[in-house]
């Protein structure tokens, strides 16, 4: 470890070169191509809702007894289905815009 009092060569800048370089790389960023997670959550929960809801339709009395008399599969399936559809609707109604260039930040 170097002497902590030793001035570093970047002492004259208020910005750190390591941080700066990485920030400059953001111009090449591909993050805008990231898909929308709401679609995945919606899709998985619609599938879970259908599977669990269908199981619920055909639940045996033994299964219903185990759940203290609740038709839990039916209700949970329905809830997950509705939640999944809400996620899909949300994504459909307000899709992700590609981020506009940030204000006040010049790009070379």
């Amino acid at each position: 470890m170097s002497d902590p009092r030793e001035p570093h060569h970047y002492d004259h800048e208020s910005y750190d070169p390591l941080v700066e370089e990485t920030e400059e790389e953001r111009d090449r960023s591909a993050a805008a191509r990231l898909f929308d997670i709401r679609r995945v959550i919606g899709g998985l929960f619609v599938a879970y809702g259908l599977i669990v809801g269908l199981i619920g339709l055909f639940d045996s009395p033994a299964q219903i007894d185990k759940a203290q008399g609740l038709r839990i599969n039916l209700w949970a399936g329905l809830a997950m289905l509705i939640f999944g559809l809400i996620m899909l609707a949300w994504q459909w109604l307000s899709p992700n815009e590609t981020p506009a260039p940030r204000h006040g930040e010049e790009r070379p």
Binding site: T22, E25, R26, R28, A30, A31, A32, L34, F35, P99
Partner: peptide, 16 residues
């Protein structure tokens, strides 16, 4: 993976 080109993408999700 399609959204990774730089180290900021990989380590900080491109701050996006």
């Amino acid at each position: 993976r399609r959204a990774i080109r730089t180290s900021v993408d990989f380590f900080l999700s491109g701050r996006s």
